[in-house]
Nucleic acid binder design. Structure first.
Lengths: 206, 206
DNA sequence: TCGTGTATTGACCAAATGGTCAAAAGTTTT
DNA sequence: AAAACTTTTGACCATTTGGTCAATACACGA
């Protein structure tokens, strides 16, 4: 059996190797994209032989899909945490900071998604439609509610969310460009205050 | 000879085929990334045989590099046009709109670059350092000048530029996601006014 | 219309790549 | 320690893919 087809307890060694593989695969897929990645690269990065990797996963695609859906949760978290009962502007700014932290702490995951979406989301469309879309609609409604209540300046909630995603993920996805232009390898100092300023000025209802 | 090694006039048919190939390659590279693209795909999209393509270009890499540097000009244009003698806020907003138009009119080019940068810019680093960096520094200085003169609210010019790139290119690079979330294939209606609003509020010195 | 240079292609190649498999090496259980 | 199971791997394999090349088809000026 490949893994735990029929409620088999995954052995210690199995867990260890699966997560090694996934970690190595995240490195490789995020840096090379799906087609650019090879099983040999993943195998080497994981410190395992290629056939051994195929012992834990049915194939390249399964590794990729596992990685994608596994990361999806982490990715949606910050948005889920945005609380309709909180103070409007604070909630939005907290969301921005959470996203920015993720770009800093999980750049590989960010690039993994960016690659996938760029290529037309061949393996993620279902997830986007099934998981992200409802959440997105719900949170847009929340934001719209805040605006209707006069707690935020009125702007299109959808584009607001897009701009948050774009500005924060940019620091992970375009890191190479940024480090060239800033001639600093430090992960974008000043982004925090800039983005806080940007979205505060946009949204405060004064 | 591959092309015009020694000041040979490129024949009519040569020009036609070279541009066909580049157009087809732009389709394929922007949709699949460098490694994801195959010469066969490009050949088919161009309506030529694979060996015929290799008759016009030395190899896959040369096609890619040609495309990249050829597009680079178009890409820098909007930034170059930003005029230090113009009205500060107008210049910035005009730049934003130009970039947004480019995301709409040349999404393939945008994705081509996004792919390249995402993978660490293996074939573009020189261009980034040699062409983009000086221009970037120059324009940051211009913006800083405007701020020092009290014509714009003071924010970090570099992050300002990053945020302009991020928000505008997002509409091209993440088009699939956006069209899922907006359930509309129209290229992001409302982006214009949202971004104008965003950057106006950020920068007006009132 | 013929000759010369240009364009095009079918047939190949070598390397890379995803994947298989049977056998060997380890573990664990009894 | 033997049986029974899990893990690991060397040797292969079929396909894909970037690229070559000699031969053929084509364009066009003399």
């Amino acid at each position: 059996m490949t893994a735990d087809e029929t409620t088999k307890k995954p052995s210690r060694i199995q867990q260890r190797n699966r997560s090694r593989i996934l970690d190595a695969a995240l490195d490789v897929f995020s840096a090379q994209g799906y087609r650019g990645a090879t099983l040999d690269q993943i195998a080497e990065a994981a410190g395992l032989s290629k056939p051994n990797i195929l012992y834990y996963f049915a194939g390249k695609e399964e590794i990729h899909v596992t990685l994608l859906s596994q990361t999806m949760e982490t990715w949606l978290d910050p948005l889920i945490e945005m609380n309709a009962d909180g103070e409007a502007l604070d909630e939005i700014l907290a969301y921005v900071m959470r996203k920015l932290e993720m770009a800093r702490d999980f750049p590989r995951e960010s690039r993994l998604f960016a690659n996938e979406i760029l290529q037309g989301a061949p393996r993620m469309l279902p997830h986007l439609q099934g998981d992200l879309k409802p959440l997105f609609d719900e949170k847009c409604a929340v934001i719209q509610g805040w605006m209707d209540a006069g707690k935020l300046a009125p702007v299109d909630p959808a584009h607001l969310v897009f701009s948050i995603w774009a500005t924060t993920q940019h620091y992970a996805d375009f890191a190479v460009q940024i480090s060239v232009l800033l001639d600093s390898d430090a992960p974008a100092p000043g982004a925090d205050s800039f983005l806080t300023d940007l979205f505060t000025k946009l949204l405060r209802s004064a």
